[in-house]
């Protein structure tokens, strides 16, 4: 994931007035499978959580893809069992225009009894 963060940083346009900065925090099993627990993405204003997923997982290990993403009509999106949390509230991953500049999105795969 550090390489992944460097890739995202290199792709960032100089003038990003139509982009927002979103901090994605990985929780639970996703956190364990990733060398870093958070990634900063610069995405198009209005993007949904589903739309963050291809960027987030570019270059990520297969195990993280399996936990966090699924394909629907050939589009990579957040797996249905993963909870998307914006700041301190769950949000519908497909909903656009909810994410604001500076938001933190936590992705929580299911966890179970001990």
């Amino acid at each position: 994931m550090p390489a992944l963060q460097a890739f995202h940083d290199s792709q960032r346009p100089l003038a990003s007035i139509f982009q927002v900065k979103i901090t994605v925090q990985l929780l639970g099993q996703a956190r364990q499978l990733s060398p870093t627990e958070q990634v900063i993405l610069h995405v198009e204003e209005g993007a949904s959580v589903d739309e963050l997923v291809p960027q987030l997982l570019a270059g990520a290990p297969d195990s993280l893809h399996l936990i966090l993403s699924e394909r629907s009509n050939e589009v990579q999106q957040l797996r249905r069992s993963v909870m998307a949390i914006r700041n301190n509230e769950t949000i519908e991953p497909s909903a656009r225009d909810l994410l604001k500049d500076g938001d933190e999105v936590s992705l929580l795969p299911p966890m179970s009894g001990g």
């Binding site: 069992s81 795969p109 299911p110 001990g114």
Partner: peptide
């Protein structure tokens, strides 16, 4: 509502420190 599907690849054995559980 929280888990509409059984997550893929879940194993019964996973990391646990007793104090956390």
């Amino acid at each position: 509502c929280l888990y509409p599907e059984i997550p893929p690849g879940w194993k019964r054995e996973f990391p646990v420190i007793g104090a956390v559980s």
